[in-house]
Amino acid sequence: MIIDTHLHLIYRSRLSYPWLSSVPPLDADFTLERYAGEARRLGIAAALHMEVDVAEGDINRETALINELSGHENSLLAGAIASCRPESADFPAYLAEIRNQPLVRGFRRVLHVMPDDLSEGALFRENIRRLSGTGLTFDLCVLPHQIGKAAALADLASDVSFILDHCGVPDIKSGGFDAWKAPLAEISRRPNVTVKLSGIPAYGAENWTLEDLKPYFDHVAASFSFDRMVWGSDWPVCTLGGGLSAWVGATHALLSGVPLEQKTRVLSGNAKRIWGISA
């Protein structure tokens, strides 16, 4: 069984996605029905929706849409990671509102396309500290040179679970292993940071192979261990690197030498523990 901790859904008639026009292959509707048909064949039993960087005015509407979809019969949606703006003075009120929505299990503020100093602002950091004691997680989507800034955020609230998306976004296509290796190892020293095995097919060459991914996977596993690793599809972004089936197949190949108990933690057990998912 697999729990997908990083599913994006795109409904262009319901929400505005300003960034889609710059990525034509993703400028389409990617619905829950479209995802579920393939996901169920692959053993995916539940999924967390990951915010899709909608227009700021649509953040609450995105959460409402996911709530609606989760109520459909046999829905795979088991929770949501909502968008947020910790740099805003309105964040405390937003946090209070979100805490009344049981479907929401955490937050993400996309940082890898934002100025490097965004997360260093006093208000941003104060609001990250507000997550302490809430049980809500915070996903860190950063480039390799920003991983140190992500580590600094994790240091602000030791009881908050931070999730490092996409293995820290290594530039696999251009051979960026050396620039990524040390920062990844450094952030792994924080016991409240979990790494997400996701996204990496999209960072490889168009004709990537398992051998291209393996050094990155091996370093992630050595740094975090399988006790602090969860799996995510990054659908539909994974369609840029072969698609959902190709990524699930590559995941099983990467985990082929791992004991069953540890493999189960990566594919479902750790997600159940961190987000309280029952599937």
Rank of each mutant, 00 (worst) to 15 (best):
residue 125 R to T: 09
residue 135 G to I: 03
residue 143 L to H: 00
residue 109 R to P: 07
residue 153 L to F: 04
residue 140 L to C: 07
residue 143 L to P: 00
residue 136 L to V: 04
residue 133 G to C: 14
residue 139 D to K: 06
residue 121 G to S: 06
residue 146 Q to N: 03
residue 149 K to M: 14
residue 156 L to I: 13
residue 102 P to G: 02
residue 113 V to W: 08
residue 143 L to C: 02
residue 118 L to R: 06
residue 117 D to F: 10
residue 110 V to I: 15
residue 89 A to E: 15
residue 147 I to G: 01
residue 112 H to K: 06
residue 111 L to D: 02
residue 146 Q to H: 00
residue 106 G to C: 12
residue 156 L to Q: 08
residue 135 G to K: 09
residue 100 N to L: 01
residue 108 R to L: 10
residue 152 A to P: 00
residue 113 V to T: 15
residue 82 A to H: 01
residue 150 A to D: 08
residue 155 D to F: 01
residue 108 R to I: 10
residue 104 V to S: 05
residue 118 L to K: 03
residue 144 P to I: 05
residue 142 V to K: 00
residue 112 H to S: 12
residue 123 L to M: 06
residue 100 N to S: 11
residue 90 D to C: 12
residue 81 I to F: 14
residue 123 L to T: 14
residue 131 L to C: 03
residue 142 V to N: 00
residue 94 Y to C: 10
residue 88 S to R: 04
residue 103 L to Q: 02
residue 112 H to F: 14
residue 112 H to M: 12
residue 125 R to G: 01
residue 135 G to C: 09
residue 133 G to L: 13
residue 125 R to C: 04
residue 123 L to P: 00
residue 80 A to V: 13
residue 159 D to K: 05
residue 132 S to N: 06
residue 92 P to E: 06
residue 160 V to I: 07
residue 121 G to A: 11
residue 100 N to V: 00
residue 106 G to Y: 05
residue 120 E to W: 04
residue 86 P to N: 00
residue 85 R to F: 10
residue 112 H to L: 11
residue 140 L to M: 06
residue 126 E to D: 10
residue 108 R to S: 03
residue 114 M to K: 14
residue 159 D to Y: 09
residue 83 S to Q: 13
residue 145 H to A: 11
residue 143 L to M: 09
residue 133 G to T: 11
residue 85 R to G: 03
residue 101 Q to T: 15
residue 101 Q to A: 05
residue 94 Y to L: 11
residue 135 G to Y: 02
residue 106 G to F: 08
residue 122 A to N: 13
residue 133 G to N: 08
residue 81 I to Q: 07
residue 91 F to T: 01
residue 83 S to N: 11
residue 157 A to Y: 03
residue 97 E to A: 12
residue 139 D to G: 06
residue 124 F to R: 00
residue 119 S to C: 13
residue 116 D to C: 12
residue 96 A to K: 15
residue 158 S to P: 02
residue 92 P to V: 04
residue 102 P to L: 07
residue 143 L to Y: 00
residue 115 P to Y: 12
residue 138 F to H: 10
residue 148 G to A: 08
residue 151 A to C: 04
residue 112 H to Y: 13
residue 145 H to S: 09
residue 84 C to H: 02
residue 102 P to D: 08
residue 132 S to M: 07
residue 147 I to F: 03
residue 137 T to C: 08
residue 136 L to F: 12
residue 152 A to C: 07
residue 142 V to M: 12
residue 105 R to Q: 13
residue 148 G to I: 09
residue 133 G to K: 12
residue 128 I to R: 05
residue 134 T to D: 00
residue 86 P to A: 05
residue 128 I to T: 06
residue 91 F to E: 01
residue 124 F to I: 06
residue 116 D to P: 09
residue 114 M to Q: 15
residue 113 V to K: 10
residue 109 R to D: 10
residue 150 A to N: 09
residue 118 L to M: 08
residue 140 L to P: 02
residue 157 A to E: 02
residue 103 L to F: 06
residue 128 I to F: 11
residue 117 D to E: 15
residue 151 A to H: 04
